[in-house]
Design a protein around this nucleic acid. Structure first.
Lengths: 213, 213, 213, 213
DNA sequence: GATGAATGAGCTTTCATTCAT
DNA sequence: GATGAATGAAAGCTCATTCAT
């Protein structure tokens, strides 16, 4: 099966290119470098991708696709909202650690991409929003999220908070409790008043094991 | 006074360049375009800025500087936390409307800039964080913000939420109530339990007039 | 064998560029011209040479290298001094006729290069001096050159004379006897008094055939 | 008399520019530098000279003119040939020490200038040749220079030797005796056989005082 | 006359892309 | 399919020159 070798090569190129693009920027990277570091000929890059731009956005698109598959698989309409939100945050966090370069590229381009959906990335971004919307709706059904909120708005607030979490200094962000503290702020913010939402480290441990494959 | 003409020219260049850079990206804009649209000679650009890169980051730096002066001037240790946060959100919102291109550039580069503080922009970013930290501390003193929160973390959550607000679809975001809804989510999230925080449109109107010069 | 084509191309570029640079000067020649006339793409010039400056000095360096190899090969410790000096003059003369542009460039830059040995050219210049010194020492051994002369000084006088010869008007310089007349002046100038040095056209013919491959 | 100030300014510019041009080359110097270092406005340069090229060659032309006036004044048809040649060498040597930059520029351009007499410099070069020719003719009349030599050729040999002298390493060239040794080689080279030519340091001293103003 | 801000032609150099091997 | 030498469009930048003050 030659597909395996092809796949390897493609992954190698995506990995190397992601690293390089994140380290400087689109124009700061040249195809020669990528080819050299990936151990392939320059011509091969053009067999794999239409152009440099295609390569660049393919990094974002492919990883973002992976991430969304992951998030959507982990979402479970039956789970409670707390678990779902925690799972969202956890998976984003894990994915970010695994593909640090991808995140930079994504965040760098997300505003640009919104306008003209180059290469279908904006569509992917839509999926994440719809996922959060579903979580919120489920939360209202459960009586955990207070009704009357503009879900489209709140979805962006949530995603923004998660991104803010990422930008916190490492010493803050890396503390495991940080995730729970953020989750607590979030739940109090959108939760039904008077309903106690217990977010504890024990639960965090538990959620973690339950949620991952 | 030749300074006036100089200033005009510089502002015109910053404006034109900001527009162009936001419309595509760094490499998608050439100095000839900028010069042409700004109505100056190409050489003049190089009298005003060291290089194309310098021009690019000068847009961010100068606007960010303006923004921070604005925010810091509007912060008032005696005001209540609600007012301070509302003022923060309002000013960010207004500035964003006035300089829509600047925001795109800023957000595009913020992750890159964090690493190597090119041209002192990261330092400016630090000022905004410290401002939010002061607001939080004041909130605790007032008994409006619950103690025990990691302020560094929460500061990033707040800034992230505000950014999320910006990313919400125009039809959501433009609704005046959106700001108050976000503020409410935020206050419930970080506020002391049981303390009623009334965020109403009337107050919003009032705060607006009180806050602006 | 791709080396052959490469070599051809390189020689063509060196030839064309030499011609152009000699015809005006460094700044009077642009890379487009060179590429066009050499029948290669502009990019190819940059595969062959680091920069325009590198190309420029490569002309001098490579030809000067050739010349020195020639001179050093033709020098023979056993030959008499007259033959050696004649050989030196003859070879310089021939080389100059073959590469008229190179000479101009060399002479134009020799004073500049002495100061900062860009690209190892000054080192080559040292080799020609040491060659003349060896000829002089041999001349003293033979009893043909009078002792007590400062050889370093005389070496420069000799090289200066040869260069003066080159600058003589064509109608003078091209006369074959001119070389012998110069050689006679030189030998009388540095020779042992009373020792007859016969420099005749016949010998010149003879020396020519003996000396060249 | 404003002419004096003008003259000062012009001399200052020529001096500064000569230094700069000698330190790098024509293209390596920009009008801003010259203006700055000379303490004049850039526009003033264009009142004094037609163009950058004109300025460049004016340095050579004006100094070369000075030099030739000097040499021609010092030549005296009645003096003996030895004195005349010594005077030639001495004056060149002195002038060179006084205007080190000029020499570099002159030598750099002399081959280029020969072809198209830009700005009348080649004409000046002709005067130096004719001066040497007159010295030689006088030498033949005196019975000190042997007849039958091609004077045009020998003139170039002499000028070449003098230039060779200049290129000799400083430690050689600076020795006062070096001039006399060169003169001796020269006189033996072109002198009538058997006629003793005494070149001593005493005479050198004497000639020096007699010759200079 | 003196100045230096403004200009833009013209240059070197880079690098995405192609295509013969 | 894989390669990388060759290409030339494109762009950043410089600096001689001008001219309004």
């Amino acid at each position: 099966m030659p597909g395996a070798k092809q796949r390897d090569k493609l992954e190698r190129v995506l990995g190397v290119a992601g690293e390089l693009f994140a380290a400087s920027d689109f124009q700061g990277v040249c195809m020669d470098q990528i080819a050299q570091l990936a151990g392939v000929g320059k011509g091969t890059l053009y067999n794999l991708f239409e152009s440099k731009e295609d390569l660049y956005f393919s990094i974002i698109r492919s990883r973002l696709g992976e991430l969304l598959d992951l998030l959507e698989r982990s979402y479970d309409g039956r789970k409670d909202t707390l678990k779902n939100l925690r799972s969202l945050i956890l998976h984003l966090h894990k994915f970010m650690s695994k593909h640090p370069h991808f995140y930079l590229l994504w965040k760098r381009e997300e505003n640009t991409l919104a306008r003209s959906d180059r290469l279908g990335i904006a569509a992917l971004y839509g999926r994440i929003e719809s996922l959060v919307l579903r979580v919120l709706e489920r939360g209202v059904e459960e009586g955990l999220v207070r009704p009357g909120l503009d879900h489209e708005l709140v979805a962006h607030l949530i995603l923004g908070m998660i991104d803010g979490l990422r930008k916190a200094p490492e010493n803050v962000y890396r503390r495991e409790e940080a995730l729970d503290e953020a989750l607590e702020v979030l739940m109090k913010g959108i939760g039904v008043e008077g309903v106690e939402v217990r977010v504890t480290y024990d639960r965090y441990q538990h959620a973690r094991s339950a949620d991952e494959r």
